[in-house]
């Protein structure tokens, strides 16, 4: 427990003191919540606008979770490898899985902090959400899947890309590109058919659609993401990404040759 808490405390402090990480994970999504809430509501009927704002806030919350997992996590792994900390840790009587749990818990903490702030700011600028207690619990489950999938991608990038800048840029690149092509930044219905398919298969956009469906209403999503097949696919792929990332990290992440 001591090693997990040591790794967790260090990672949390580092993340909270890293201005770039805070900007991209928290400030950037909030800026887009503000821009989106005042600019992209268009000619929608007034009674719908709060839910459009809710849907924008959810999308940006998902983006914040993606950046935390896909960029901050690999930055932490690649940075420690590059600066020699990994050599130091390998020479010490430490179990790698404890370091892994500590790191990933720190990313989850930052993710949840970012998600909460995005939702609070969204609500402050007029976003409204629907949903019963059960639907909120389901939405939290989908948030967890987004964290799993993002952390999986982050672990893969952090393990395979040895260079710090390379790992960060790859993580940000994957987050931005997949957000753009999966309908996180644009309505699903304007995507071309192949990207609509991608949007349903990509677990993060699928989970995002599910959260919007649950908390902003079915009218905010162009398809029903809550069919059992779609949910099963989202769960399976989220855990698959996390599993692949964990296996790669445990086999290669603590290996210097």
């Amino acid at each position: 427990m001591g090693q997990i808490s040591a790794a967790y405390t260090k990672a949390v402090k580092e993340l909270l003191r890293e201005k770039a990480a805070l900007f991209w994970t928290i400030a950037w999504p909030i800026i887009w919540v503000l821009i989106g809430s005042f600019s992209f509501t268009g000619s929608a009927p007034p009674q719908v606008i709060p839910y459009i704002k809710g849907s924008i806030a959810i999308s940006m919350m998902v983006f914040a979770l993606m950046i935390a997992g896909m960029s901050n996590l690999p930055a932490s792994i690649a940075g420690d490898r590059q600066n020699g900390l990994l050599s130091k840790l390998i020479s010490m009587p430490i179990k790698p899985y404890r370091d892994f749990i500590g790191r990933i818990s720190a990313v989850i903490t930052l993710s949840l902090l970012a998600a909460a702030l995005v939702i609070v700011i969204g609500t402050a600028v007029g976003a409204r959400f629907t949903g019963t207690g059960v639907e909120i619990a389901q939405a939290i489950g989908f948030v967890f899947l987004v964290i799993c999938a993002s952390a999986g991608v982050g672990l893969i990038a952090g393990t395979l890309i040895k260079n710090l800048q390379g790992a960060i840029m790859t993580g940000v690149g994957i987050a931005v590109i997949t957000s753009a092509i999966s309908g996180l930044f644009a309505p699903y219905e304007v995507l071309p058919m192949p990207l609509q398919v991608f949007s349903r298969v990509y677990p993060i956009s699928s989970a995002q659609a599910s959260i919007v469906h649950l908390l902003a209403g079915p009218d905010m999503v162009a398809y029903n993401p809550l069919t059992s097949g779609q949910i099963a696919l989202t769960i399976a792929l989220s855990f698959a990404l996390l599993f692949i990332g964990t296996v790669l990290y445990s086999r290669l992440g603590w290996k210097l040759e």
């Binding site: 040591a6 003191r17 600066n83 020699g84 010490m92």
Partner: peptide, 28 residues
């Protein structure tokens, strides 16, 4: 072992860095 590269975290204080390593080694 003290590797050639600087491995201490620049974002933490000297004390925080050492507490991190002490906790990793099992000290309360």
């Amino acid at each position: 072992y003290v590797p050639q590269e600087n491995f201490s975290s620049p974002k933490l204080s000297g004390k925080e860095n050492l507490v991190y390593f002490a906790n990793l080694l099992g000290y309360s």
